[in-house]
């Protein structure tokens, strides 16, 4: 009884929270809102430049994190099997990295990309900071996908005299595609929800960015700024939160589809 009561209570609370965002956000969603520049510090107008900046930051993030993460995952899954010293150390370092709070990434990004490398408050600084942040989840998912390819596939290929490169390219990657996509989407979702690491790396200029070296405000930073610093910005903060949540839910849905498919291919392999 106690358990059911608590579960119902907490469930209702959650629906209150999600329902609040959806109901208060939905009326603000119009073409103009998605298409226009913000006016009057965001109280009026739309979020077009914010969406463009967000997309640019995410492109920088994935453009940097995917090659490095992919290489690391291949190394951990195919070349080291978790047994070499380097493999063990890298995995350990990634576990620690996964638990570093986002504000610390913000400090790091500010010190390294904005100041030391001289990129200032820019989309590039923000994107690179987020790339460091999403690496662990990206690597973990891709590695799990590569490892899920059955050993028999590798052994048969080796018995047929295929080179390792050919095995990876023609057998393992195709089989692991869904999990690669899932890793990418998980990283994307994580980057999209991040705020604290961006406030002082990519900054909060809400103009349309002209290059990657311009400061750009991400969707999450826009919500924060409207809610905290702009009196009367609530309506547009809710509408922006609505957009953010819908984007995240779509990404999560796609991830679930990928993982589902991955489970099925694995079943067939067995």
């Amino acid at each position: 009884m106690l358990c059911t009561g608590v579960a119902v209570g907490v469930g209702l609370f959650f629906f209150w929270l999600i329902g609040d965002i959806f109901l208060k956000g939905a009326p603000g969603i119009t073409w103009e809102f998605l298409w226009d520049e913000p006016e009057n510090a965001g109280r009026k107008g739309g979020i077009a430049p914010v969406l463009v900046s967000t997309a640019a930051i995410l492109l920088v993030t994935l453009g940097t994190a995917v090659p490095i993460g992919f290489g690391t995952a291949v190394f951990l899954a195919e070349f080291s099997q978790g047994k070499t010293t380097l493999g063990r150390m890298v995995r350990r370092a990634l576990d620690v990295l996964a638990s570093v709070p986002s504000i610390i990434f913000g400090l790091f990004g500010n010190a390294v990309f904005s100041h030391w490398m001289g990129l200032g408050f820019s989309i590039l600084s923000g994107g690179l900071t987020l790339a460091c942040m999403v690496l662990p989840i990206l690597i973990r998912t891709i590695e799990a996908g590569l490892r899920a390819v059955p050993l028999s596939t590798r052994l048969s290929a080796a018995a047929l005299g295929l080179s390792r490169v050919a095995v990876l390219r023609d057998l393992i990657f195709p089989a692991a595609v869904p999990s690669l996509a899932a890793g990418l989407l998980l990283g994307l979702g994580r980057a999209l929800s991040e705020t604290a690491a961006l406030i002082f790396t990519s900054g909060y200029v809400s103009r349309m960015p002209e290059s990657l070296l311009d400061s750009g405000r991400s969707l999450s930073v826009h919500i924060y700024d409207l809610a905290m610093n702009v009196p009367g910005g609530d309506t547009h903060a809710y509408a922006s939160a609505w957009v953010l949540i819908v984007l995240l839910f779509s990404i999560n849905g796609l991830t679930a589809l990928c993982l589902d498919h991955w489970g099925k291919t694995r079943m067939r392999g067995l």
Binding site: G69, G71, F75, L86, V90
Partner: peptide, 11 residues
């Protein structure tokens, strides 16, 4: 791949 993992380990 080795270089990539060294990079991600060093972060």
């Amino acid at each position: 791949c080795r270089l990539a993992s060294i990079c991600s380990g060093l972060i």
